[in-house]
Amino acid sequence: MARPTVWITRRLSDATLERAQRDYDCIINWEDRLSSADDIVAMSSRVDAIIPCHSEHFSTDVAARLDPRLKIIANHSVGVDHCDLPALNARGIVVTNTPDVLNDATAEIAMLLMLGAARRAVEGDRLVRSGSWDSWSPAFMVGKQVTGARLGIIGMGRVGRAFAAKARGFDMEIHYYNRARLDPELELGATYHGTIEALLGIADFLSLHCPATAETAGLMNAERFAMLPDGAVMVNTARGALVDETALCAALSSGKLAGAGLDCFADEPGGNPALATYDNVFMLPHIGSATVSTRDAMGFRALDNLDRFFAGQRPRDAL
């Protein structure tokens, strides 16, 4: 019996590619270039499965044009806002993701961004690197203390809870908003707020960990930034679509926000040049899950989903 053919759209970890080639006939994008909608449609007639990343977009139009040969899209990501799930499901295409395995890596990046924004890391690094550091005083480079502060988390899913666990190591007071209140064994003493607005008023630090949907687009806008305490710090390691970046710049310029830590942007790759003008914004190029062990785990989770599908079973992470 012929082995299924799988298209791997980006250069995944070496361990993932080795396992994939062992078990499947693979078409691998060794050059690691972006694929267009036409590329995706054309390839769908040659393969039984695709392992894409968030960089490949399966819109309504793309879904309608996919070849019937394609049976499963096993995403190498947790977020699936790049996939029109109803359109793909209507075509009978199974879609999976990779939950659980990147929680800690992403939470680590959120902690890095929070600390970097609070303690003026960008400004300090630039000062030393440029050779401009020529004085010191008790008033020099004074930042915002994380230890003991009130942390507001929007989206208390796997990553949000992993971030809360790390924040407790800094004795932070954890508050959160979620679509539903957590059970006590998951809440671990955190204070639940029934609305985002109720949470914002007490958040010295605010961290976003919710998916990008039609309901959450522009979640942090001018009105909601105004509800934060003066001098708050916002962190976003979820999706750029959650933040109105024009309103974010206004909040930074006015001093409403003391800083921001961002790993994702409305436009990716590239980011927002306007945000680059702020020394109090600590930015990274969407690398929340970029550790060797996490990339291996994500790739293996995607392959686990393929293995189950081609064995005639429902994939663990079918959506």
Rank of each mutant, 00 (worst) to 15 (best):
V6D: 00
T9Y: 01
L12K: 08
A15N: 14
L34W: 14
L34Y: 14
S36P: 03
P52N: 13
H54D: 14
H54Q: 15
S59F: 02
D61Q: 13
V62P: 05
A63M: 09
P68Q: 05
K71N: 02
K71M: 03
I72L: 09
N75S: 15
H76A: 13
G79Y: 06
V80Q: 12
C83I: 13
C83K: 09
L88G: 02
R91I: 06
R91M: 08
T98C: 08
N103Y: 08
T106E: 09
L112W: 09
R129G: 07
G131K: 10
S135E: 14
P138K: 02
K144Q: 07
A149F: 08
L151Q: 06
I154E: 04
R158Q: 14
A162W: 02
F163H: 06
A165F: 00
Y177W: 14
Y177A: 09
N178P: 03
R179V: 05
E187G: 13
L188A: 15
G189M: 04
T191W: 06
T191C: 11
T191V: 15
G194P: 09
G194S: 14
E197M: 09
G201R: 12
I202C: 15
I202T: 14
A203M: 00
C210M: 11
A214Q: 15
E215A: 15
E215M: 12
M220Q: 01
R224Y: 03
R224A: 04
R224P: 00
D230G: 14
M234Q: 07
T237D: 02
R239E: 03
R239V: 02
L242C: 04
A250N: 07
S254W: 00
G255K: 05
A258D: 08
A266C: 10
A266N: 11
G270W: 02
A276N: 10
Y278I: 05
N280G: 00
N280K: 03
V281N: 05
S289T: 13
A290K: 10
A302T: 11
A302S: 15
L306E: 07
D307M: 11
R308Q: 15
R308E: 15
F309C: 02
F309Q: 00
A311G: 01
G312N: 01
R314L: 13
